[in-house]
Design a protein around this nucleic acid. Structure first.
Length: 718
DNA sequence: CGCACGTGGTTTTTT
DNA sequence: ACCACGTGCG
């Protein structure tokens, strides 16, 4: 009965699916059928009676991936996937913590702080602790706390040898105490708390170890140390951990991912079988050859080479533009041509390293009347009006949630000013209570607010979820507030009202799709699934997104734009250990998104932070074999190498584009290798100013990064 | 309380 | 260039 499951799998995929019940690492290259192997493995285990659906735990990073797995599994097996433990790390930890909230020392209705909530909680705390927010930027503090938790560390476990770090540790400790008082947890707390729950409570740990005979992990290269420890704990001595990942696509080290987990897994789980999935079903040969050539420049790889049974296909098309706007113009022309040839717009992606680059592209697309969609902006549950509505609901659920209270105590305005709020905070601090308790004892407008929340709560006690929300919107004054808006803000307010209505719709959907249709469950859903970027695959529109956001997707045609030294690879990666390698993996991800056609474009100059800046072609382009590239810009037709690169002004014959306004920083360009009498070797990382003020920034091998005034500094090309 | 203006920062991001 | 945030005034 498994023949239909296994048919169509190549030998390696099949070997992975049919592995005996032991831990394994599947090195799955881009486009090698990774998700298919993962889901087929689960179906196979269940079908062969090796495990019941009840005994499987499958974990992913995104809700999208989890959903996809469930959908595919349902198509393969006639089982109810609803109760199965398939989800994100955060989703599964949340589930365990809810089930054992007492043991985890949490209220049953604990709420989840998203990154924005976390930041405001930290700001508030720092104010009350009198911490200087110039010396300790709240954002940095949030990072400090989260990254320590991702390492599995509590405040008292952090090594602090200097007063600066010690102060941060104090805030860390106080922050956790504040969250505990308020009955809220942030994202990393969800994981750490769950880890601690399992590690301290032997009975619980053994219960889950007995249950989950097979643990499957997607995108294993993206796991953090804490996530890995959590997996190890659940796997225990005898369960099988089936990890699928690709070290070459590890692009999230900056947020705590640890590729080293792959090596550790081999050692810790005595993995005998590493299976490599190297056959690619996505791209033509030249695209894969380019990807392979590029990534071979990285050291410390587990080693993998993608191949395809398809033909080589086209060469990669390279285009150099004078300015960013010309780059955009070229892209528009090519897209129009492709569209005429019958390629759907939604089969074309424009990728860039950083979000700011979308602006110029968007401008050109609008002028040309091409429809597009930018992926990755603000998400539904992160919109201001939605967060306000949710804050009412959260406060009704859990009055200890100071964050929620502060957000809405004066929104819409009800005459409770900064002064009254300060008094509340002082009173709460004095009596070590929450703001709600302090508010309950206050009079006047504050007590009216307390009464409002209480009346919302009692009036909605027995209502179904969508009606609760409807009632709150109508009686909190939120809907009213936006309805009354006039003048310049009218349109904006109308949109916000629409979004609030959409919130009711999403609650209706939620009730239909979930067994647990409580308010708490919905609020959790809102925190953990910030809302898919509006779907809408129906209309034919171009895809614009960062390279990061493109991971996992594929397109007929891909444009990788802004291939300039300093942009991609990004100059900030220069100072980070292993930074360049991660940038190269990012480029590898970008290249492997393309099925048939790949454009690589760059510009000699572009607007950056409000100034024109000049860059050199990306070193990544130089790492691609010449024979795979087809130069579309005239300049380089006769030239095979970049070594004789000249500033734009030196070549008057270039195209018809107007010459860019020239910086007097002369011939120095970002990415250029230089030599200085005193500081030695370095690379130009910035160019600015003109005339006597012209300066270049150079990152010296030994002397570090410096700004040099060109009038005085003696720089030579190296 | 709310708006106007000034200032600083500006890679990537899911949960 | 652009946006988010904070301060000071009406």
């Amino acid at each position: 009965m498994n023949s239909h499951l296994l048919s169509g799998l190549n030998p390696e995929q099949r070997a992975a699916v049919e592995l005996p019940a032991q831990s394994a690492l599947i090195l799955a290259g881009a486009g090698s059928g990774k998700t298919r192997v993962l889901t087929t493995r689960i179906a196979y285990l269940i079908n062969t009676g090796q495990v019941s659906p009840h005994g499987v735990l499958a974990v992913t990073f995104t809700n999208k991936a989890a959903k996809e797995m469930v959908t595919r599994l349902s198509a393969m097996l006639p089982i109810n996937t609803r109760g199965m433990w398939i989800g994100t790390f955060h989703g599964l930890c949340n589930r365990m913590l809810r089930a054992h909230h007492r043991e985890a020392n949490l209220p049953q209705t604990f709420q989840i702080l998203d990154s924005g909530d976390q930041l405001s909680a930290i700001k508030r705390l720092m104010k009350s602790m009198n911490v200087d927010d110039e010396k300790y930027p709240p954002r940095e503090m949030a990072n400090f706390i989260s990254s320590n938790k991702e390492q599995g560390l509590r405040a008292h476990e952090v090594e602090a040898y200097d007063p600066y770090t010690r102060r941060k540790v104090e805030v860390f400790a106080e922050y956790d105490a504040q969250c505990q008082r308020e009955g809220v947890v942030d994202f990393s707390e969800l994981l750490l708390r769950c880890y601690e729950l399992l590690s301290r409570n032997a009975a619980l740990r053994e219960h889950y170890q007995d249950r989950f005979k097979h643990i499957l992990v997607d995108e294993f290269q993206d796991t953090s140390p804490l996530q890995y420890r959590w997996l190890k704990l659940l796997a225990g001595r005898s369960n099988a951990l089936f990890a699928v990942g690709d070290d070459d696509q590890s692009i999230y080290a900056f947020r705590g991912a640890n590729v080293g987990n792959m090596q550790d897994l081999l050692r810790d789980f005595h993995v005998e079988s590493v299976i490599k999935l190297e056959q690619n079903y996505r791209s033509h040969g030249n695209i894969l050859d380019a990807a392979n050539a590029l990534i071979s420049n990285n050291r410390n790889r587990l080693g993998k080479n993608l191949w395809t049974s398809e033909s080589g296909g086209e060469q990669l098309r390279v285009y150099e533009a004078a300015r960013d706007v010309d780059e955009a113009g070229f892209i528009v022309d090519e897209i129009k041509q492709l569209h005429r040839e019958g390629v759907n717009l939604k089969e074309i992606a424009l990728l860039y390293r950083s979000n700011a680059q979308s602006r110029v592209l968007e401008h050109a697309l609008v002028s040309a009347g091409l429809s597009y969609r930018v992926y990755g902006g603000l998400r539904f549950f992160e919109r201001q009006e939605i967060k306000h509505a949710l804050a009412y609901l959260r406060l009704m659920e859990n009055t200890d949630d100071d964050n929620a209270l502060l957000r809405i105590i004066n929104f819409p305005t009800r005459g409770i000013g900064a002064r009254s709020i300060e008094q509340l905070q002082e009173a709460a601090k004095m009596n070590s209570t929450t703001l709600w308790d302090a508010a309950a004892r206050a009079g006047g407008k504050v007590s009216a607010f307390v009464a409002l929340i209480e009346s919302l709560r009692s009036a909605t006690k027995d209502l179904p979820l969508p009606e609760i929300i409807d009632h709150v919107l109508e009686h909190s004054g939120l809907a009213e507030h936006f309805k009354n808006e006039t003048g310049a803000k009218k349109r904006e307010a109308e949109e916000r009202l629409e979004n609030l209505n959409e919130l009711i719709n999403s609650a209706t959907m939620f009730v239909h799709e979930n067994e647990d249709d409580s308010l708490t469950a919905f609020l959790t859903h809102a925190s953990l699934e910030a809302g898919e970027h509006q779907a809408g695959d129906q209309d034919d529109a171009l895809h614009l997104m960062t390279v990061h956001a493109s991971k996992g997707l594929e397109f007929h045609t891909v444009f990788i734009t802004g291939l300039e030294e300093g942009l991609f690879p990004h100059q900030n990666s220069q100072n980070v250990d292993g930074g360049l390698d991660e940038e190269r993996r990012l480029m590898y991800v970008a290249i492997t998104r393309a099925r048939r056609r790949l454009y690589l474009t760059f510009a000699q100059s572009r607007m950056l932070h409000g100034k024109v800046s000049y860059g050199m072609v990306s070193s990544f382009l130089r790492e691609l074999p010449d024979e795979l590239l087809h130069w579309l810009s005239p300049r380089f037709v006769a030239r095979k190498s970049f070594d004789s690169y000249l500033p734009p002004s030196a070549d008057a014959s270039f195209g018809a584009a107007p010459a860019p306004a020239r910086a007097d920083a002369g011939i120095w360009r970002i990415g250029q290798r230089v030599f200085h009498q005193k500081f030695g070797e370095g690379v130009v990382t910035g160019v600015e100013g003109g005339g006597a003020d012209a300066r270049v920034q150079v990152n010296f091998k030994h002397a570090g990064s410096k700004w040099l005034a060109l009038e005085y500094a003696k720089l030579t090309a190296a």
